Simulated assay, not measured.
Amino acid sequence: MSDQQPQNPYGQQPYTDQQYGTQAPYTPPPHGQAPYGQPAYEHQPQPQPQQQPYAPPQYGQPQQPSHAQQQYGQQQYGQPPHDQAAYGPQAYDRQAYAAQGYDQQAYAAQAAHPPAAPAAPVPAPAAATATAPEAAAPAPAAPLAPNQRARAEGRSPIIPPGIQPAALTAALALLLALAAPLGQPVLCVPVVLLQAVTAAGWFRLNGMWPARQGIALAFLAGVTTDVALLVTDHGSAPLVAIATLGVWCLFVLVLQLRNRGSADERMSALTAGLTATALAVLASGQLAAQADAVTAGAAAVAVAALVRALPLPSAATLVLALLAAAGAGYGVGQLNGLDTAGALLGLAAGVCALIGLRVASYDYPSRFVHLTAGVALPLTLAAPAVYILGNVIG
């Protein structure tokens, strides 16, 4: 084997550490191309002369423009090199460009296609600006109605009338108890008031308002029964009530024949009218009953309504209301000679009163329903028990 090193097939010696970093001959690029390391200019004002070759910067040394490059840039564009404030205000002076022979056609071509300027923001109106903080603030939430709150909490839709209707019921019961010993003509006054409130409350409870004709017919049926009871004896009260109810139910039917609503509306109006008429006639039982029974029954209804409205658990108020009604009947019975039978009368009147309160609490009733049906139905439904038990006991 020979000790000679293999020859480079290209006839050149490999680079060494000493050769690396030295200046090597530079071959200029083809005509029309930018020299190595120089960016191409965007605007060519006129055909460029042949560029002079220049030596590229050596490796490991900072790249700075040579004297030829600085002279070339000053002759062609009248601008200082990049390291001498090339981006100052003078670089964009059009008069300086025109004085140096700047090509106006190239400038016009560039101006024909300017970059799209961003749209200026449209100022908001003064009113909208003034109300912007108010719109951003959340509107205060309206308080929920009792029925909405009960539905949101998953509770029963049955809402009792409350303490205020119970107080009105007690006041009306007191009028009945005080007027009963004074005779039928005086007792007729609170009974008529009871019939008016019953008729109006029942139509509103069924979602029918205004229903002036239906309410008027039901109320007139009750008043007609009162007048008939005043001219007859107590024994004929059932016959008077049935006869009056039959006649006025016929009037209600004729009234609904003139109704131009749909079949469902006519049926609902007919049902509500017949029921209201029957309740108004039923309230006349207070006028036909014995005076002592009316007093005991009214006291029992008043106490039962007040106890039922107490803020206690429903089961507790139910039991307490029945016990209170029986106790009130017994107490009043001791005063007017009913003895222990007054407790039975009071218990029966209390049961009817609680049924009336339950009916007036049905399906999210309104405040108007509570102040009409919630007030009258306990006394109205207790009238048959007062009449029947009063005749039996007396």
Score class of each variant (00 low, 15 high):
residue 258 R to G: 14
residue 68 A to M: 07
residue 75 Q to H: 11
residue 136 A to R: 10
residue 264 D to E: 15
residue 320 L to A: 14
residue 55 A to K: 05
residue 85 A to K: 14
residue 340 T to V: 02
residue 131 T to F: 13
residue 145 A to Q: 14
residue 16 T to G: 06
residue 155 R to M: 15
residue 166 A to C: 00
residue 74 Q to M: 11
residue 38 Q to R: 11
residue 99 A to D: 15
residue 114 P to C: 06
residue 169 T to Q: 02
residue 9 P to H: 04
residue 29 P to K: 05
residue 362 Y to T: 07
residue 96 A to G: 09
residue 124 A to H: 08
residue 173 A to L: 00
residue 92 Y to N: 15
residue 138 P to L: 08
residue 50 Q to T: 07
residue 270 L to I: 04
residue 332 V to M: 08
residue 293 A to D: 06
residue 300 A to D: 13
residue 226 D to Y: 04
residue 128 A to P: 07
residue 365 P to N: 00
residue 2 S to P: 10
residue 26 Y to N: 05
residue 279 L to E: 12
residue 301 V to N: 09
residue 293 A to I: 01
residue 266 R to W: 12
residue 77 Y to G: 05
residue 321 A to V: 00
residue 209 W to L: 09
residue 182 L to K: 07
residue 43 H to R: 14
residue 288 A to M: 02
residue 107 Y to E: 11
residue 91 A to G: 12
residue 259 N to Y: 11
residue 278 A to D: 10
residue 339 D to C: 01
residue 233 D to K: 13
residue 331 G to C: 11
residue 160 P to T: 03
residue 23 Q to M: 03
residue 14 P to I: 02
residue 316 A to V: 14
residue 3 D to W: 12
residue 45 P to V: 02
residue 127 A to P: 04
residue 370 H to T: 05
residue 280 A to Y: 00
residue 387 Y to H: 13
residue 121 P to I: 02
residue 230 L to E: 09
residue 291 A to I: 04
residue 51 Q to S: 05
residue 333 G to M: 12
residue 59 Y to C: 00
residue 19 Q to L: 13
residue 45 P to D: 15
residue 157 P to A: 01
residue 110 Q to N: 10
residue 87 Y to L: 09
residue 248 W to Y: 13
residue 156 S to H: 11
residue 334 Q to Y: 03
residue 57 P to C: 04
residue 389 L to S: 02
residue 185 P to V: 01
residue 383 A to H: 03
residue 38 Q to G: 06
residue 18 Q to V: 08
residue 282 L to V: 09
residue 31 H to M: 10
residue 135 A to N: 07
residue 365 P to Y: 00
residue 265 E to F: 02
residue 77 Y to Q: 10
residue 263 A to E: 14
residue 247 V to E: 03
residue 98 A to W: 12
residue 41 Y to G: 08
residue 287 L to K: 06
residue 95 Q to E: 13
residue 227 V to N: 10
residue 2 S to H: 05
residue 154 G to K: 05
residue 202 W to Y: 14
residue 50 Q to M: 08
residue 140 P to N: 03
residue 245 L to Q: 05
residue 17 D to T: 09
residue 377 L to R: 00
residue 24 A to I: 09
residue 289 A to P: 08
residue 128 A to L: 14
residue 298 A to Q: 04
residue 332 V to F: 02
residue 292 D to K: 01
residue 166 A to F: 00
residue 202 W to D: 01
residue 7 Q to A: 15
residue 4 Q to G: 08
residue 262 S to I: 10
residue 299 A to M: 09
residue 253 L to V: 12
residue 283 A to E: 13
residue 369 V to H: 01
residue 361 S to A: 15
residue 310 L to V: 01
residue 269 A to S: 14
residue 33 Q to N: 09
residue 292 D to M: 00
residue 353 A to F: 04
residue 115 P to A: 10
residue 370 H to M: 12
residue 197 V to L: 15
residue 286 Q to F: 10
residue 9 P to M: 03
residue 386 V to F: 07
residue 382 A to P: 09
residue 127 A to Y: 06
residue 347 L to D: 07
residue 375 V to Q: 03
residue 98 A to E: 12
